[in-house]
Design a protein around this nucleic acid. Structure first.
Length: 583
RNA sequence: GGUCCCGUAGCUCAGUCGGAUAGAGCACCAGAUUCCUAAUCUGGGGGCCGGUAGUUCGAAUCUACCCGGGAUCACCA
């Protein structure tokens, strides 16, 4: 329960009391009443918009409603003062003990501070990179975003399943198999020359070729279809193992892997289509050419099996089978989501690259159609990542196979830096990833800046014994029992208010599915802590450790530990390590 | 042309179910270290929140239309 919610409840009770007395009419929209921190700290600790929201429905003017509310609120022990301001805001000042009580609460709960419960089951699918090669940096953003979102949603009470959909049935997998077969011949001593156009040139397939050569020495003499099948059966697990390794290096792990091929093999694709067909949503037809100035030059009308996605808000109906009768990628994707629903996850989130934006409506249409509106799919898109070094974009050529892999980036700058940097921009905005910034040890590097704040607090605690405080004194349990009344300075109280905002921030970040807010909150909190630290240089009374002020020192240590705990908790949500020492 | 995203300080970007005088970092200028990590901090200047209209007690935020930038648009995954 966070402080803002408590005060909001208090206000609601006061309003209800006024209604019970007849001072306010019944039937007011109390649910719209909110409490928020005022922009200007001089206005108080919290402000409510209640009077302005309720004035019109109550048939009173805002300042009169505010007056009634103020008279009611000041009777509460929690509220020290309440005054009317501006157009009808009620500014509240909470009794200091209420704020101070937050510190032991955090110390008791540890990094679980801010946890919420009971938000229900949720399936989140992310990464789902094709198993045809190593992960590159573009995948990293979706991986980090998806993982951080999953952690955030778990923190806020969801029962989350992290899912990876393996596209192991498309034509790209055939290309993978043929590329692996070529590498197999190479492994057997054949001079294969340059890798032909249309096959994957990357060195990462050399071990796959060797594995094939060892496990299936006679494969080259088999029928083509057998060769392909065998190559796939060897190459796919190796590619997926590598992807899992790369993800693990980033601190990302999925709970469930769903194979597209398995959906074909067990008839799920057919069943999904039958389900749609039974609702009358499938027909044979010819799509109109795409509208616009420049229709594709090679466009020609094709009769295809179509899904009536336009009945569900899509711009056009969409093909499930190509004109040659084979499946489009859309059909197994429907089966994939149907599969999730049937496994008990009607609430789904997909994380896609921004280049798939145009695909969202049809997928949502299909989910709505196949579940009769019972299931919902949210799609979050991640925009491009541009790698920068020395102020210049890093050149990437996929053709030559010299693209920067996720593994290389993680090895160069570390997983924490990759993860944090990926969350320094809204997911749907393009992001510059600058190697120079990420490796910098200064204020410019947000990863460093936040971790350094945590390390600095740990440093103070390490220095405590020298200042005469025992190990027992500075344990969280002891600090939580400290009297904190000596924490009076505005800078100290401001830090506590910021800590109080943490659960609120988590809730709104989760609701809007925006884990980057956690990163921004941490940067802000770190700045506030660094400022308090430096204040101790000129204000000796604010220095944390003072041998001649035992009670005051312990109170300050309690505040510091609470701050470190919230930083550690927030870092946990985005999967970054809270460093204990940075020298 | 359709759809979606974006437009906020010189630059890069935050901005909470609409809330009070719109914030931060960088850059620029001026300062702080016998002292818990100066790897940090303090202060200063800098704004038509792309534009117009609308809804509202109140709009950077919501709606409509325009302007500018980007992504995407049968059959590829």
């Amino acid at each position: 329960m966070n402080l803002f919610a408590e005060i909001e409840t208090q206000i609601r009770h006061s309003l209800q009391a006024l209604q019970a007395r007849g001072a306010l009419p019944d039937g007011l929209p109390l649910e719209r009443v909110g409490v928020e921190p005022p922009r200007d700290a001089s206005h108080g600790d919290m402000a409510t918009n209640a009077a302005m929201i309720l004035a019109k429905p109550a048939g009173l003017n805002p300042r009169d409603v505010a007056g009634l509310l103020v008279a009611e609120l000041v009777q509460s022990d929690a509220i020290e003062s309440a005054e009317i301001a501006g157009p009808g805001f009620v500014n509240l000042r909470l009794s200091a003990s209420l704020w101070l009580a937050l510190v032991p609460k955090i110390l008791h709960q540890g990094i679980r501070f801010g946890d919420q419960t009971g938000a229900g089951k949720l399936n989140i699918e992310y990464v789902s990179a094709n198993p045809t090669g190593p992960m590159h940096v573009g995948h990293a953003r979706g991986a980090v975003f998806g993982d951080a979102l999953a952690r955030l949603l778990e923190k806020t009470g969801h029962d989350v399943l992290r899912e990876y959909y393996i596209n192991d049935a498309g034509s790209q997998v055939d290309v993978l198999a043929r590329s692996a077969l070529l590498r197999m011949r190479e492994a057997m001593g054949e001079d294969i020359g340059a890798i032909p156009e249309g096959l994957y040139p990357g060195d990462y397939l050399i071990p796959v070729g060797q594995a094939l050569a060892e496990s299936h020495p006679d494969l080259a003499s088999q029928e083509d279809a057998t060769q392909l099948q065998t190559a796939k059966s060897v190459a796919l697990p190796m590619m997926m193992a590598r992807i899992r390794d790369d993800l693990a290096a980033l601190g990302v792990a999925h709970d469930f892997f769903l194979s597209e091929q398995s959906l074909h093999d067990d008839g799920s694709v057919d069943k999904s289509l039958e389900a749609l067909d039974s609702k009358g949503l499938i027909y044979q037809g010819v799509l109109e050419p795409p509208k616009g100035k420049t229709p594709p030059p090679d466009w020609e009308p094709q009769e295809q099996t179509l899904f009536r996605s336009s009945d569900f808000g899509d711009d056009s109906d969409r093909a499930l089978k190509k004109s040659d009768g084979s499946w489009t990628y859309f059909a197994p994707d429907i089966a994939c989501h149907f599969n999730k629903v049937k496994r008990g996850y009607p609430q789904m989130i997909d994380v896609w690259g921004a280049d798939h934006i145009g695909y969202i409506k049809r997928m949502q249409s299909a989910v709505t159609a196949i579940s009769d509106g019972e299931a919902s799919l949210e799609v979050k898109v991640c925009n491009l990542v541009k790698l920068m070094r020395g102020g210049e974009p890093v050149k990437m050529s996929k053709r030559s196979g010299s693209f920067i892999t996720l593994r290389e980036v993680v090895e160069e700058v570390g997983k924490d830096a990759v993860r944090f940097m990926m969350l320094t921009r809204k997911n749907d905005a393009p992001l510059d990833f600058d190697f120079d910034v990420v490796k910098d040890k200064s204020r410019d590097n947000p990863v460093f800046y936040v971790q350094y704040a945590h390390a600095r607090i740990c440093s103070v605690l390490r220095n405590a014994p020298e200042a005469g405080f025992s190990e027992a004194d500075i344990r969280d349990a002891s600090l939580a029992a400290q009297n904190l009344d000596s924490l009076k300075d505005p800078a100290e109280l401001a830090l506590i208010r910021n800590l109080a905002n943490y659960p609120r921030m988590l809730a709104s970040a989760a609701q809007s599915r925006e884990p980057h807010r956690v990163a921004f909150y941490l940067m802000d909190l770190a700045a506030e802590f660094h400022a308090l630290w430096n204040l101790g240089k000129e204000r000796l009374d604010l220095r944390f450790l003072q041998a001649d002020d035992r009670a005051g020192s312990l109170a300050r240590l309690a505040l510091l530990r609470a701050t470190a705990t919230v930083i550690a908790s927030g870092l946990e949500v985005i999967g970054v390590t809270p460093e204990v020492e940075m020298r």
